[in-house]
Design a protein around this nucleic acid. Structure first.
Length: 645
RNA sequence: GCCGAUAUAGCUCAGUUGGUAGAGCAGCUGAUUUGUAAUCAGCCGGUCGGCGGUUCGAGUCCGUCUAUCGGCUCCA
């Protein structure tokens, strides 16, 4: 007999060899039908795996992340089983569950799968699932495992097995499909009711672009058809927030094939939005002791040789441009830091000059591979809200914290509540990718980790994500479809000051080397605007909306009064326009609503007589009427609250 | 860059087995002078992404280039 402890603390005696599924059955049949996996002590197990010693057991169902994981992982096997039947000779790479669904990487030889094949695969999956197939676990020796896949001729599995230790290898079998797999899996396939192959894509074997590209099939499954419908509707909703769609509809930005890919054109409304953001940040920075500077868009190749960027990125940059007579070489500016270092060097510095905070909305140009470009989030020409802080080593942590404060202030003003703080350190196994000594790197990384702890940010450490010259703290936000984008970044750099031989004279009258902080709270204006659009679905905070108010005269007779209202609003720094078309009020309202204009002011005879406006708020409807000055006061209060510090 | 898909009017989209392009919205003109999500009528608008090929004939089939979309790789 063994003792099983359930999460509520109750202890039950069972025969050795009992399974989590059987324990569930002892509680209720309904529960047993829904158990997908179980936590046995600290490991996640198949619910059908015999438990042979005293254990703590927690059951997982569809409502648990772990339950979904087991189900989607099992679904990946099911999909592979279907593919193996439909396309004999297919070889398999890896097939994990992901945040929403699962994928499998498959080598189909010369066969090409397109979305036309999806229904066939879905149908086969459904057919198999109905048969209530199990996922049979089997422990195998390394020799057995290798023999199995040698016989099958699957070099991908052989490679994976060769890296495993004998005695730790397990197979799972579903019908005829046998897979190398650690598990856990759901008890059987009958729980799966809805199947969707979402997309097909190429993916390099083991993420290495020098190796073969396999076909990756993405899919998702659900226990009810209704869940799938809801999920697909959610995806449709997300697409409506897509900044590329809204940017077009709201006339914020555009691209032109003739101008070139990845080179955004900012339209008047988008430019206005961007300038409002810039002015806001400039004001915040001015208060925080920053000074604005400006630099040209090109720089001599020597500048980037000094900084080390040439050696690191020279081959992957836009080719240098040359002067026709002298043959001098210039790079399009890919970053602002080297220029700012040269600004630092213009005059000798004393410790009394530090910290020196140089800020620039610097437009930079980077060669990005064509397949990587994406709306405004990944472009070839963009403007960083850049600044470089030159300080003494003693000042580093306080300066770093000062930057965090600015980032948080911005996120708060724009209502970004959900973001991930990431501590990007270098890859300890791949140090040659980075410049600078171990000592300097350790010092920088320690500083960031300490700041993270002292500020209670709970940053997630990611190795191999550092810049080549120093570690970073990055702030990541998700787009409408859940893809993560880096916005704000703060980087510690001991290397550039070294390479540029930056110095200051300390109170000891000796020369010292300053430390540098690179930072961009927005990241880039392009990416920030993109994520902002998706975040608020185009309903910008009032202070940022290009056109805050649309005045809608009932007819031409009230044009004069509308103009009077417009003047009053403009004089109070509110951005308003008049819809002068000879359309019905219903039509004007509809168009203003579609443009997501926050306030609509309807003016007619009644309003003209008593100096009021009839107010309609976007998405809310009629708010009744108000005196003009009262309305102005209300809006100014609303704006002041939004950007309060 | 790689794998797959897509490209028709300013926008959203139709266009059968190859037979000389169509709708709605937008725009322009006129009428209408309007009270909380689409007033009516007329008109304008297209090298069917570019180039090349097959064919008596190509928006439709083939090749190639460009751009876009979904991934992979990359991201100073």
């Amino acid at each position: 007999m063994i003792n099983i402890t359930l999460p509520d603390g109750s202890v039950h005696q069972h025969e050795s060899g009992i399974t989590a599924l059987e324990i569930a059955l002892g509680i209720s049949e309904g529960l047993a039908r829904n158990v997908l996996a179980a936590k046995v002590n600290d490991e996640i197990w198949d619910a059908t795996r015999p438990i042979t010693s005293d254990s703590r057991v927690k059951l997982y169902t569809w409502s648990d992340t772990e339950g979904k994981a087991a189900m989607w992982h099992s679904s990946a096997h099911l999909m592979a089983a279907a593919v193996e039947i439909l396309y004999p000779g297919a070889k398999f790479g890896i097939g994990p569950n992901i945040e929403n669904g699962f994928y499998y990487d498959i080598d189909l030889g010369d066969r090409v799968i397109t979305d036309a094949d999806f229904p066939v695969i879905e149908a086969k999956m459904k057919e198999l699932a109905k048969q209530k197939l199990g996922f049979v676990r089997k422990e195998v020796s390394k020799a057995e495992a290798l023999k199995h896949f040698e016989d099958k001729g699957d070099e991908y599995k052989l490679e994976l097995i060769s890296e495993l230790e004998d005695g730790t290898i397990t197979f799972y079998q579903t019908e005829n499909f046998v897979d190398l797999c650690r598990g856990p899996h759901m008890p059987n396939t009958a729980f799966l009711k809805a199947f969707k192959i979402l997309s097909v894509a190429g993916a390099y074997w083991r993420g290495d672009e020098k190796r073969k590209q396999l076909t990756r099939l993405y899919g998702i499954t659900f226990p009810k058809a209704k869940d799938l419908t809801e999920y697909l509707e959610l995806l449709e909703e997300a697409k409506k927030r897509d900044h590329r769609k809204l940017g077009k509809e709201l006339e914020l930005f555009a691209f032109s094939q003739r101008v070139g890919q990845g080179l955004p054109l900012w339209l008047p409304k988008g430019t206005q939005l961007r300038e409002l953001l810039e002015n806001y940040l400039k004001k915040v920075q001015r208060k925080a002791g920053y000074q604005q500077v400006m630099c040209p868009h090109i720089g001599n190749v020597e500048l980037y040789k000094t900084s080390g960027h040439y050696q690191k990125y020279g081959e992957d940059s836009f080719k240098p441009i040359q002067t026709p007579v002298e043959g001098e070489e210039f790079f399009l500016k890919p970053m602002n830091c080297p220029h700012h270092c040269e600004i630092y060097k213009v005059s000798p510095k004393s410790y009394k000059d530090l910290p020196l905070r140089l800020a620039e909305f610097g437009t930079v140009y980077r060669y990005e591979q064509s397949g990587e470009l994406h709306g405004l989030t990944r472009v070839r020409g963009f403007t960083q809200d850049d600044a470089h802080i030159f300080c003494t080593p003693d000042q580093l942590k306080d300066e770093f914290k000062g930057v965090i404060k600015i980032v948080m202030q911005i996120f708060k003003a724009l209502d970004f509540k959900e973001f991930i703080t990431q501590i990007s350190l270098r890859d300890p196994n791949n140090k040659e990718k980075y410049i600078g000594s171990d000592e300097v790197w350790e010092k920088s990384e320690r500083a960031i980790i300490e700041v993270d702890q002292e500020e209670g940010l709970n940053g997630v450490v990611e190795y191999g994500e550092a810049a080549f010259y120093g570690p970073k703290m990055d702030f990541m936000v998700k787009d409408a479809l859940g893809r993560k984008w880096q916005l704000g970044t703060i980087q510690v750099d001991y290397n550039l000051p070294e390479r540029f031989e930056l110095e200051y004279v300390g109170s000891d009258n000796e020369k010292h080397r300053p430390v540098m902080i690179h930072r961009a709270p927005f990241g880039s204006m392009e990416r920030f605007v993109a994520v902002l659009i998706e975040h608020c679905a185009g309903n910008f905070p009032l202070w940022l909306t290009p056109n805050q108010i649309m005045i809608l005269p009932i007819s031409e007779k009230y044009q004069k009064y509308a103009e009077k209202v417009l003047n009053l609003l403009n004089n109070s720094d509110l951005r308003a326009r008049i819809d002068e078309r000879s359309e019905k009020t219903g039509r004007k309202i509809r168009d203003a609503e579609m443009q997501k204009t926050p306030y609509m002011l309807i003016v007619g005879e009644k309003e003209e007589l008593d100096g009021s406006v009839s107010i309609r708020r976007h998405g809310e409807g009629d708010l009744g009427s108000m005196q003009i000055d009262e309305f102005i006061k209300m809006l100014n209060n609303e704006i002041a609250e939004l950007i309060a510090e």
